[in-house]
């Protein structure tokens, strides 16, 4: 039976070691919203020797490009986007101390290895559950590159954001293991 965890960011290595694929987790605290364009800019900043707009140590990046916020709301609908597009950038961030990511879908071998080697974690949020997830997001503050619109780098305060552990620091892959008991073809 999968375990349930309540996690608050930043995550410690001890927090991460308790997580196993298939476990449910409810995340609270700050998570950083970034997708394709913001990742490209982060890596360009590192290549120039500049610091990142936030200290990645122990933090979680959420791959999301929300719909526009309606008046009076911090954010619009905000479900996960496909993580694989960020694969090229992810190992470098994990080496700098990033604790993990929230997204959806398979990762490359290089990312899976970096998750294991750096004691990190990859969570899946439910793709398509964007209005539900939006209710867990209490604030949304753009930190850098506002010209990227919904792709800007932002800090979000979240409360009990429901996710599933899909890659743990022991090399486990829920997308591979989860299907096995139900596979007939």
């Amino acid at each position: 039976m999968p375990a349930t965890h309540h996690l608050t960011t930043p995550l410690s290595k001890d927090d991460i070691r308790k997580l196993r694929i298939g476990d449910l987790a409810f995340i609270s605290g700050t998570v950083y919203a970034a997708r394709d364009a913001a990742h490209k800019r982060m890596i360009e900043a590192l290549d120039r020797g500049d610091p990142l707009p936030f200290d990645p140590r122990g933090q979680i990046v959420y791959y999301v490009g929300p719909t526009p916020a309606k008046p009076g709301k911090p954010i619009g609908s905000a479900g996960p986007t496909t993580s694989g597009r960020m694969d090229a950038y992810t190992p470098r961030l994990l080496q700098l101390g990033l604790a993990g990511m929230i997204g959806k879908g398979n990762r490359s071998r290089a990312v899976m290895d970096a998750i294991r080697d750096n004691v990190c974690v990859y969570f899946a949020a439910t793709g398509g559950a964007a209005a539900l997830i939006s209710r867990c997001i209490k604030s949304y503050v753009v930190l850098a590159w506002p010209e990227l619109g919904p792709e800007a780098l932002a800090a979000m305060e979240v409360e009990n954001f429901p996710v599933t552990v899909v890659a743990d620091c022991y090399g486990g892959d829920q997308y591979e293991e989860g299907a096995k008991p139900y596979r007939r073809v």
Partner: peptide
């Protein structure tokens, strides 16, 4: 639940519209 919330708030079901 997501579909119910989206309908009640007239909010997009998914952020990728």
């Amino acid at each position: 639940r997501n579909a119910d919330i989206a309908a009640a708030e007239n909010a997009p079901i998914c952020q990728d519209t």
